[in-house]
Design a protein around this nucleic acid. Sequence first.
DNA 1: TTTAGACGTCCCGCGATGCGGGACACTTAT
DNA 2: ATAAGTGTCCCGCATCGCGGGACGTCTAAA
Lengths: 250, 250
Amino acid sequence: MTDGSDRTRVKSVETALDVIEYIHRERSATIGEVADALGIGKSTAHRHLTTLHDRRYVTREDDRYRLSLRFLTFGGRTVYELPAREMIERKVEQLCDETGERAQFVIEEHGERVYAYTHAGPNAVRTDAAVGKRGPLHVSAAGKAILAHLPVERREALITEVSDDASLGARRVREELAAVRERGYAFNDEESTTGLRAVGVPVACPDGRVLGAISVSGPANRLTGAYFREEIPVLLLGAVNEIELNLKYR
Amino acid sequence: MTDGSDRTRVKSVETALDVIEYIHRERSATIGEVADALGIGKSTAHRHLTTLHDRRYVTREDDRYRLSLRFLTFGGRTVYELPAREMIERKVEQLCDETGERAQFVIEEHGERVYAYTHAGPNAVRTDAAVGKRGPLHVSAAGKAILAHLPVERREALITEVSDDASLGARRVREELAAVRERGYAFNDEESTTGLRAVGVPVACPDGRVLGAISVSGPANRLTGAYFREEIPVLLLGAVNEIELNLKYR
DNA sequence: TTTAGACGTCCCGCGATGCGGGACACTTAT
DNA sequence: ATAAGTGTCCCGCATCGCGGGACGTCTAAA
């Protein structure tokens, strides 16, 4: 290595991952674009893309490379094998039917929230909630529900991490999470997107670890008053209760 | 390289992909398992896994490594950005409502079919149709619908490829695909799974290229006679017609 | 308590191999 | 006709990926 030789990682693998991530960001790329963007030789980019293409991690149409659906294949199975997946999907859909809004099941990974399953009811607003989409935990109802139930060390680590830039103070976050734990559900009152509200409830494994969270989200003009503050939470708690039973006695 | 040095690929990247694919197959693995299975040194496996972990492509729980949801993130967006995705999802769900069975949208990639979106109606049988799941084109209704409308060279290449092991003769396949092209939809009459029937209709882009196919599948005892041979095809053709209009005038 | 066998981690020296530069053919747009 | 894209291929240098092995730790068995 040029300098601080890091013998614990494989540099050319990191380059390959850089290539993958660049294509992901840009949707598609040519060899030259990759080489320029990553500051590597064109021949190097060529070799990496050829490797990824031979192994079917990228597709090629004319001279543009894109990520293949192999990523979906890998990721899809991870989700498919979640405990109680089938029941969770059914409950998410049921919540959509009952509320007409959008519902989703969210998982925590690497300190982020990831949408594992989403469904839209008949009146659902358009959001960009897509399967696999990631975002910070502390600005979403489902994310807060999960965050509140993470083990203390992990929770604290994440809180201090986000409080730096968010600047709304670790204290306020801690207070809100304590409230979430107490009442059993979390709200998102236009914090991430103006006009969008949501309620989230954590789903716990029998061993107490949090598996993820279910949330229902909709426009602020429909989600108001007791419907938002009480009725939807009750619906969610009922659904989660069934899921947790399923997890226990499966 | 040991021998026929292949200067066009990056060997250590291939090793990393081997690691990923091994974990995918086994669901989870330790460093030692990876090293043994791939016939590489333990330290090499360690370095690769550390790299993949640092970059968040794998998660680690105790000493077991698993694929992370990052794959879902990448694959999810590829699907999310399909043209007319929203309309396609709506139509798939509508078909489930109308038939009570299972419906899915399937895409061709690298000569295989990939489930891009699936939905289950109230009576749907359990199948292992999961988002991202792959399989051969010629043994599924949606797959045949796609295969029939692929450009001649690609089609022929795939037919000869599968006819070797399937041994049912390239000729019969060609005949069936011609019939599919003529009537506009394909059947799967318990060819892949006994007791399971399906109807598939291709979805074409305005430029004539096939985008994918929608199919409805259900148990042979419910999908019979004119309902299977005529009514379901009509429902599918109607749905696809709307999708194709959406693709055209979007 | 000791022992054996897992696990991950770390270090090191050898040489295979990943690297960039550059030549080349090809297509497209200027 | 020229220029600027594209991908492909070759080559020589030295970087960096490799396996072997030492080490600490933990669990389970003896």
